Amino acid sequence: DTLHVTQDGKHIELRGLSEEEIKLVEELLRRGRKVEEALKIIEELRK
Rank of each mutant, 00 (worst) to 15 (best):
1 D>L: 15
1 D>I: 10
1 D>N: 14
1 D>A: 10
1 D>G: 15
1 D>F: 07
1 D>Q: 11
1 D>K: 05
2 T>L: 04
2 T>S: 12
2 T>H: 10
2 T>M: 09
2 T>F: 08
2 T>A: 05
2 T>V: 15
2 T>G: 11
2 T>C: 10
3 L>H: 11
3 L>Y: 04
4 H>D: 09
4 H>K: 06
4 H>S: 10
4 H>R: 04
4 H>Y: 04
4 H>W: 12
5 V>W: 04
5 V>G: 07
5 V>N: 07
5 V>A: 05
5 V>K: 03
5 V>F: 04
5 V>Q: 07
5 V>Y: 03
6 T>C: 09
6 T>R: 02
6 T>F: 14
6 T>S: 09
6 T>A: 08
7 Q>F: 02
7 Q>M: 07
7 Q>R: 01
7 Q>V: 11
7 Q>L: 08
7 Q>S: 12
7 Q>N: 10
7 Q>A: 07
7 Q>T: 08
8 D>G: 07
8 D>R: 00
8 D>E: 06
8 D>W: 00
8 D>F: 01
8 D>Y: 01
9 G>I: 05
9 G>V: 03
9 G>T: 03
9 G>F: 04
9 G>S: 04
10 K>F: 10
10 K>E: 14
10 K>Y: 14
10 K>L: 15
11 H>N: 11
11 H>D: 14
11 H>Y: 11
11 H>E: 14
11 H>P: 12
11 H>A: 07
11 H>Q: 08
12 I>R: 03
12 I>L: 07
12 I>D: 06
12 I>M: 09
12 I>A: 05
12 I>G: 03
12 I>P: 08
12 I>T: 04
12 I>H: 14
12 I>K: 05
13 E>Y: 10
13 E>W: 10
13 E>A: 10
13 E>M: 08
13 E>R: 02
13 E>P: 06
13 E>G: 05
13 E>V: 14
13 E>D: 10
14 L>A: 03
14 L>E: 04
14 L>H: 03
14 L>N: 04
15 R>C: 05
15 R>F: 15
15 R>I: 13
15 R>M: 12
15 R>S: 13
15 R>G: 12
15 R>Y: 14
16 G>V: 04
16 G>D: 13
16 G>F: 07
16 G>A: 05
16 G>Y: 06
16 G>N: 10
16 G>H: 06
16 G>Q: 06
17 L>F: 11
17 L>Y: 10
17 L>S: 00
17 L>K: 00
17 L>A: 02
17 L>R: 00
18 S>E: 05
18 S>N: 09
18 S>M: 05
18 S>L: 07
18 S>Y: 05
18 S>F: 05
19 E>Q: 15
19 E>W: 14
19 E>H: 14
19 E>R: 14
19 E>T: 14
19 E>F: 14
19 E>C: 07
19 E>V: 15
20 E>A: 13
20 E>V: 13
20 E>C: 07
21 E>A: 01
21 E>V: 01
21 E>I: 02
21 E>H: 02
22 I>C: 06
22 I>Y: 09
22 I>S: 08
22 I>W: 10
22 I>H: 07
22 I>F: 10
22 I>E: 06
23 K>C: 06
23 K>T: 11
23 K>P: 04
23 K>N: 09
23 K>H: 11
23 K>G: 09
23 K>R: 14
23 K>A: 13
24 L>M: 12
24 L>S: 03
24 L>G: 02
24 L>F: 09
24 L>A: 05
24 L>E: 04
24 L>T: 07
24 L>Q: 05
25 V>I: 13
25 V>S: 00
25 V>Q: 00
25 V>M: 09
26 E>A: 09
26 E>N: 14
26 E>R: 15
26 E>P: 01
26 E>L: 15
26 E>F: 14
26 E>K: 14
27 E>I: 11
27 E>N: 10
27 E>Q: 11
27 E>Y: 12
27 E>L: 12
27 E>F: 12
27 E>G: 07
28 L>T: 04
28 L>N: 03
28 L>D: 01
28 L>C: 03
28 L>E: 05
28 L>W: 11
29 L>R: 03
29 L>I: 13
29 L>Q: 03
29 L>H: 02
29 L>K: 02
29 L>P: 00
29 L>A: 02
29 L>N: 01
29 L>M: 11
29 L>D: 00
30 R>S: 12
30 R>P: 00
30 R>G: 10
30 R>Y: 08
31 R>P: 02
31 R>T: 13
31 R>M: 14
31 R>Q: 15
32 G>M: 01
32 G>K: 02
32 G>P: 01
32 G>T: 01
32 G>L: 01
33 R>P: 01
33 R>K: 14
33 R>Y: 15
33 R>I: 15
33 R>W: 15
33 R>A: 15
33 R>L: 15
33 R>D: 10
33 R>C: 09
34 K>F: 06
34 K>E: 08
34 K>A: 09
34 K>N: 12
34 K>S: 14
34 K>V: 07
34 K>Y: 09
34 K>G: 10
34 K>C: 02
34 K>H: 11
34 K>Q: 08
34 K>L: 12
35 V>E: 04
35 V>C: 02
35 V>W: 07
35 V>T: 05
35 V>L: 12
35 V>P: 08
35 V>F: 08
36 E>G: 07
36 E>I: 09
36 E>V: 08
36 E>Y: 10
36 E>N: 08
36 E>S: 11
38 A>M: 07
38 A>D: 00
38 A>R: 00
38 A>P: 00
38 A>T: 05
38 A>I: 15
39 L>Q: 04
39 L>R: 04
39 L>M: 13
40 K>T: 11
40 K>E: 11
40 K>V: 11
40 K>Y: 10
40 K>N: 10
41 I>D: 04
41 I>E: 09
41 I>A: 09
41 I>W: 09
41 I>G: 02
41 I>T: 07
41 I>V: 11
41 I>R: 06
42 I>S: 00
42 I>K: 00
42 I>L: 09
42 I>W: 01
42 I>E: 00
42 I>V: 11
43 E>K: 04
43 E>Y: 10
43 E>M: 10
43 E>H: 08
44 E>P: 00
44 E>D: 12
44 E>V: 07
44 E>T: 06
44 E>G: 07
44 E>C: 05
44 E>L: 09
44 E>Y: 09
45 L>V: 06
45 L>M: 11
45 L>C: 04
45 L>P: 00
45 L>I: 12
45 L>N: 07
45 L>Q: 09
45 L>H: 06
45 L>D: 04
46 R>Y: 03
46 R>M: 03
46 R>W: 03
47 K>M: 15
47 K>Q: 14
47 K>H: 13
47 K>L: 15
47 K>I: 13
47 K>D: 11
